[in-house]
């Protein structure tokens, strides 16, 4: 039984995600959670596999490279890197809001719009740097 039920079954539930009107603030909010959880569930197992494969020697590493170098693997890597840069920009936004700044409506909206754009630009810059090196 949930906490809510134990306390007072008559307490109402609020409408959830699907009922809210989409806007930039709501988008960065839910993206922060989705990218954080995505990295935790997909990115960290990949990191563990990568480190384990390096430690296990060239053959194990070759398996890792052939899987992650495939088109599907590259898609996952690009996805994880985007998740990181998105989570980083929305996380930095969290830091600003945590110190009590940036709540003015226009400024708050401006950074909600900017965060995903900066996230995509950083992802593109990262892959350009990796591939052009």
């Amino acid at each position: 039984m949930s906490q809510r039920d134990q306390q007072n079954p008559a307490r109402p539930l609020s409408p959830h995600l699907q009922i809210w009107r989409w806007g930039p603030h709501m988008l960065v909010s839910i993206l922060h959670r989705a990218t954080g959880d995505g990295m935790a569930l997909v990115g960290l197992p990949l990191l563990v596999w990568w480190l384990g494969a390096i430690a296990s020697g060239p053959e194990a590493y070759a398996t890792f490279q052939s899987v992650m170098g495939s088109p599907l693997g590259m898609l996952v890597l690009v996805g994880v890197s985007w998740a990181f840069f998105q989570h980083m920009t929305s996380g930095l936004r969290h830091f600003v809001l945590d110190i009590g700044a940036g709540y003015e409506l226009d400024i708050n909206r401006m950074w909600s719009v900017a965060a995903p754009i900066i996230g995509i630009l950083l992802t593109a810059a990262f892959w350009a740097a990796v591939l052009l090196k």
Binding site: A62, Q65, V130
Partner: peptide, 21 residues
């Protein structure tokens, strides 16, 4: 901590270029 250390990893990746064993 993540911000500092992940930045290190990302820059290292960018400088590495060759991802061979």
């Amino acid at each position: 901590g993540n911000l500092v250390l992940m930045s290190y990893l990302v820059v290292s990746f960018a400088l590495l270029g060759d991802f061979g064993h």
